[in-house]
C-alpha cells in the first residue's frame, strides 16, 4: 500500500484554475519532492490530500484512506503549513500541549527534545515570536507525535541557514526511523539534497515525475566552452543543444543526447577551455518549465 496515493485529482475554484488531473504515489520510507513555482498548485494538492478542501474529481488517499471520511488517519500525519498561524494569547508550550492533546500518546518528552534541537523557547508568547520562530513552533508542532508521514509545505521559508540545516538533519533522522516525507518547495536545492523522487508541477499539472537520479542523470550536461578565437555559431546548431548562451569566445549550453556527437563537433574547433558539469535541478527544471510556455 502506498503512503500517499493521488489519482486524477482535479480541483477547480469556480473559474480559477486549481489543479488538473494530478496523479502521483509516494511509497513507504521515501522522501518525495514536489516542486513548482509559486501558484502552481502545490498547496492546493496538499490541502485536498489533507481534507481541508474537496476535490472536484479524482481522489487523494493517505495510508489508503481519505482524510474527509476517515479523519483518524491524520493521527499518523505531521503537517507543516507554508504559513503558520496560531491562537492569540498562547505561549509556545500551551500550543504544543494543546497539539499533543489530539494524539493518543504522551508527547512531553518529545516536545522538550524537539524544542532543544530547534532552539525554541517554550515559555515565550507566540504573538511575540518572529516569523522564523513561529515556523519553528510549526516544525515542532508537526513532529511531536512522531508521525509516519510528514508533509512539509515550503518548510524553510523564514529559517536562517543554520536552522535550515538542523531542520533537514531532523527530517533525515525521522526518515531513517521510518517516516515517509512529502516535501513541497519552490527551492530546488533543498529538494535536490533530500529527495529520491520528484514531481514537477506547473500551472496545476504534473509535467514530470521522475527519480532524482534520472532527472539529474546522464540526460543532461552543462557544457561551457572557450574558443581561441570567436566561436562559429553553427557548431551548436545540432539536436540536443538548448539554453545556448553564446558571446564571442565563450559559449554555454545544456546538452542532452549522445555525448560522442557533441565531443566530435567540439573537436573541430580550437578550444582554450572546456568544462562539462552535471546541471543542477534548477536548470533542468527551467528546461521543462520554459519548453511549453
Amino acid at each position: 500500500m502506498s503512503v500517499i496515493e493521488i489519482k486524477n485529482l482535479t480541483k477547480n475554484y469556480g473559474k480559477a484554475r486549481g489543479i488538473i488531473d494530478v496523479s502521483l504515489t509516494v511509497e513507504q520510507g521515501e522522501i518525495f519532492g514536489f516542486i513548482g513555482p509559486n501558484g502552481a498548485g502545490k498547496s492546493t494538492t496538499i490541502r485536498t490530500l489533507l481534507g481541508l478542501i474537496y476535490p472536484t474529481s479524482g481522489s487523494a488517499r493517505i495510508f489508503g484512506k481519505c482524510c474527509t471520511t476517515n479523519p483518524e488517519v491524520r493521527e499518523d500525519v505531521g503537517y507543516l503549513p507554508s504559513e503558520v498561524f496560531y491562537y492569540d494569547g498562547m505561549r509556545v508550550i500551551d500550543l504544543l500541549r494543546y497539539s499533543a492533546s489530539f494524539y493518543k500518546k504522551d508527547c512531553t518528552k518529545r516536545i522538550n527534545e524537539l524544542a532543544e534541537i530547534m532552539d525554541l523557547d517554550l515559555k515565550k508568547r507566540i504573538d511575540d515570536l518572529s516569523f522564523g520562530n513561529k515556523k519553528k513552533v510549526g516544525i515542532v508542532q508537526g513532529l511531536i507525535h512522531e508521525p509516519r508521514l510528514i508533509i512539509l509545505d515550503e518548510p524553510t521559508a523564514g529559517l536562517d541557514p543554520l536552522m535550515q540545516q538542523r531542520f533537514f538533519e531532523l527530517i533525515a533522522s525521522e526518515n531513517k526511523k521510518g517516516a515517509t516525507v512529502f516535501l513541497s518547495s519552490h527551492i530546488l536545492r533543498e529538494v535536490q539534497k533530500m529527495c529520491e523522487r520528484v514531481a514537477l508541477i506547473k500551472d496545476g499539472r504534473i509535467i514530470k515525475l521522475e527519480k532524482m537520479s534520472e532527472l539529474q542523470g546522464n540526460n543532461f550536461k552543462r557544457i561551457k566552452v572557450e574558443g581561441q578565437s570567436d566561436l562559429d555559431k553553427t557548431i551548436f546548431d545540432m539536436p540536443g543543444v538548448s539554453k545556448l548562451e553564446n558571446g564571442g569566445k565563450t559559449a554555454s549550453f545544456l546538452y542532452r543526447g549522445d555525448i560522442n556527437n557533441i565531443i566530435r563537433k567540439l573537436a573541430q574547433t580550437e578550444l582554450s577551455n572546456l568544462s562539462i558539469d552535471e546541471p543542477d535541478l534548477e536548470e533542468i527544471f527551467m528546461h521543462y518549465y520554459s519548453k511549453d510556455g
Partner: peptide, 17 residues
C-alpha cells in the same frame, strides 16, 4: 478568520467533532 484552519483541521478529528 484567524487562519488557524490548517492547524486544527489537520488534527485527527472530524469536522463534526
Amino acid at each position: 478568520s484567524d487562519k488557524t484552519t490548517e492547524y486544527l483541521m489537520t488534527k485527527p478529528v472530524s469536522r463534526a467533532a
